Amino acid sequence: MEIGALADWAEAGAELLAVCVALFMPYYTAYKAKKHRQRNLQLVLQRLVQAVLEGQPDSLKTLDIFLKISFLSNEDANNDELLLTGNQVVALYADQTLSAAARQARVVQLMAQVQLPVTVKAPTKN
């Protein structure tokens, strides 16, 4: 019984490998793109919330607009918690009954729940 030349077997193995790569490469690139979008959302949310905590002008409005646009273009259920946390931060700043210290403490707590650290800078003495 003859099993064929070694070159034929090597060619068949290479073809099988090429087919596997061609079939699974789109799934892998989509997975990497999804992770990249989630990382970008985390970074931007963290920076915008930090700007709100620092009291930078128009930072709350920018955060609100960013969240609305991100919510409309969101296709990943894993990003829902980040977007809801951002909306809770905006709602906290809309609530005028809270003191500034309580509001800042609650924002830091909310961001810690989604593992995005933000800091509140202590007021400087003049």
Rank of each mutant, 00 (worst) to 15 (best):
L83A: 03
A102V: 09
Q42W: 01
E75A: 05
D58V: 07
V107S: 05
R39A: 10
R47K: 13
A112I: 00
K121P: 14
L41Y: 05
G55A: 04
L16W: 11
R103Y: 12
Q50W: 02
F71C: 09
D8V: 06
A5S: 11
L110F: 08
M111V: 09
Q38K: 03
T29C: 11
V44L: 03
A18D: 14
V107Q: 01
G86W: 00
N87F: 07
A5T: 14
A91I: 00
Q56W: 09
L23G: 09
A33N: 04
D76M: 01
G86F: 01
V90Q: 03
A100S: 15
G4P: 06
Q115S: 13
D80S: 09
A102G: 13
E81W: 08
D8L: 12
T62C: 13
A94F: 03
L67A: 12
D80A: 04
M111Y: 08
K34H: 05
E2M: 13
Y27C: 07
V120P: 04
L23D: 02
K32V: 15
E15H: 07
A10T: 11
A94K: 15
E15C: 11
T85A: 07
L98P: 00
D95K: 02
L84Q: 13
N74V: 02
L82N: 04
V118W: 04
K121F: 11
D76Q: 08
Q109K: 13
A102Y: 00
A14S: 14
A122K: 08
N40I: 05
L60W: 04
Q104N: 14
A100M: 15
E15V: 14
L92M: 06
E75L: 06
A77S: 07
V118N: 07
V114M: 00
N74M: 06
D58S: 09
P57F: 06
A14P: 00
R37H: 10
N40A: 05
A5E: 14
P26E: 04
A122I: 12
L6T: 12
A101M: 07
Q38P: 01
R103W: 11
Q104W: 04
K61S: 13
T97E: 11
F71H: 12
Q56C: 05
Q113H: 08
S70A: 13
M111D: 06
D58P: 02
R106D: 14
G86T: 04
V114K: 07
R47T: 03
K68V: 03
L63I: 03
N78M: 10
G55P: 01
C20K: 07
V21A: 10
M25V: 15
A94C: 13
L17A: 15
L60M: 08
L16Y: 10
E75P: 01
W9T: 14
L67H: 05
R37L: 06
M111P: 00
Y31I: 00
A14F: 02
S70P: 05
S73W: 02
Y93G: 06
A94G: 15
W9A: 14
V90T: 03
K121Y: 15
K35E: 11
S70V: 01
T124Y: 12
L72I: 08
A22S: 12
F71L: 06
T85E: 04
L82V: 04
